[in-house]
Computed example of a mutant assay.
Amino acid sequence: MLPTTNHNPAFNLTRASHVSLSVTDLERSRDFYRDVAGLVVTRETDNAIYLRGLEEASHHSLVLELAKEAKALYIGLRVRTDDDITAAEKFFKENNIEHRRVEKDYQGPTLQFRDPVGTWMELTSSMDVVDRKMQQFNEFVAGAPQRLDHYQVVTYDVQTATDFWTGLGMRMSEYTAKDGTDELWGTWMEVKGNTHDLVFTNGRGPRLHHFAYAVPDGASLIHAADVAGALGFGDEIDRGPGRHGISNALFLYLRDPDQHRIELFNTHYQFIDLETPPIRWDVSNPRRAQLWGMPASRRWFFEASEFPGEEVHEPLLQANPDTLEDYLGIH
């Protein structure tokens, strides 16, 4: 069933903001995100590394925390003001949603919570400001990521996730359904005016499938793939380069040393005007995921980062997607 966006939510979300991952080797992970992906290191400590895109003025958009196990710790969204953090606390309390106020380095008021399908989320209203590097072209390396753009989460219940987030003001720009129905298999939702800040797709979840950074152009994706190959990470090119039907974006997916997945992408479109309806894709249409015809590998479809201590559930909807191995006759 298609959701109805609440245009007067209890608090104001503004954009995808930051993601926190636990990693098992800080130095190796830093080298990957700095040298293979192209992010900027803002600060390093003994237990954490903070990184950002070249055009970002916020202190960080990616936090790597040292741990014994690799997990997706939190995916972060910004709210407009400190008052929105207070309003979010009130909303979560009234709706029996587990949450807590925390102190985080380099962030203003911060609230952590689990959404109804178990996604570990973090809201903040501000961050320390640092210098943008968007005109330091001598520092553009690998894919030269400019800014964090969105997340994709695998969930066992796409409808419940979508109803919750559209109730908080997100708009659905595109979706996947089956057999002429509007039974939701995947939803692309936004608050900042392009195609997505937060995506939910059907599968074993909750798990973080990927987080994505916008890059300057298509050539940056090719260069990132070349750099990955040159630095010994060619086997960690998880998918692409290619072009999605959904969002129209050029893409390249990479896996870090702990197998967290990052997407570098370019060229999705604006989705601002309220009268614009979402685009429907049938799950049987392979062009939704790859306009160039080559399907993704099994690991792209079935592997993702778990949240710590969060039980992973089997999906309510069952499917067997066509994979690259099927395409090539590999069993």
Rank of each mutant, 00 (worst) to 15 (best):
T4R: 09
N6Y: 01
H7N: 13
H7C: 02
N8R: 13
S20G: 05
S22T: 15
V23Y: 10
V23D: 09
T24Y: 06
E27H: 13
V36C: 04
A37Y: 02
L39D: 13
V40A: 04
V40K: 12
T42I: 07
A48Q: 13
I49Y: 08
I49C: 05
Y50A: 06
R52L: 11
L54F: 12
E56G: 09
A57S: 12
S58H: 08
L62Y: 15
L62M: 08
V63C: 12
L64P: 05
L66G: 04
A67M: 10
K68L: 10
A70N: 06
A70G: 05
A72H: 05
R78S: 14
R80Q: 07
T86E: 12
E89H: 04
K90Y: 07
K93I: 09
K93H: 10
K93P: 03
N95E: 00
H99L: 03
H99F: 06
H99T: 11
R101N: 10
D105L: 14
Y106A: 01
Q107K: 08
Q107G: 03
G108Y: 07
T110P: 13
L111G: 10
L111D: 09
P116I: 06
V117W: 01
M121H: 05
S125A: 15
M127E: 14
D128C: 07
V129N: 06
K133T: 09
K133S: 03
Q135G: 01
E139H: 08
P145A: 03
H150S: 08
Q152H: 08
T155I: 04
T155C: 02
T155G: 03
V158M: 04
T160Y: 02
A161C: 10
A161F: 00
D163K: 07
F164I: 00
R171G: 00
Y175E: 06
A177C: 14
K178R: 15
D179W: 05
T181I: 08
W185N: 11
W188L: 00
M189N: 10
E190D: 13
K192H: 12
T195V: 08
D197S: 15
F200Q: 01
N202Y: 00
G203W: 05
G203D: 11
R204C: 11
R207D: 06
F211Q: 00
A212V: 04
V215Y: 10
P216W: 13
P216S: 09
P216I: 11
G218N: 11
A219F: 11
D226V: 09
A230V: 01
L231W: 03
D235L: 04
E236A: 13
E236S: 15
P241C: 02
S247P: 05
F251Q: 01
Y253L: 10
D256V: 04
P257A: 03
E263R: 01
E263S: 06
L264Q: 01
T267D: 12
H268A: 06
F271K: 00
I272K: 15
E275Q: 13
W281Q: 11
W281V: 02
V283M: 05
P286Y: 04
P286F: 14
A289H: 07
M294H: 04
M294L: 14
M294I: 15
P295D: 03
R299W: 04
R299P: 07
E303F: 15
G309K: 00
E310T: 15
E311G: 02
H313W: 13
H313G: 02
P315Q: 10
L316V: 09
D322W: 14
T323A: 03
E325W: 00
Y327K: 02
Y327V: 02
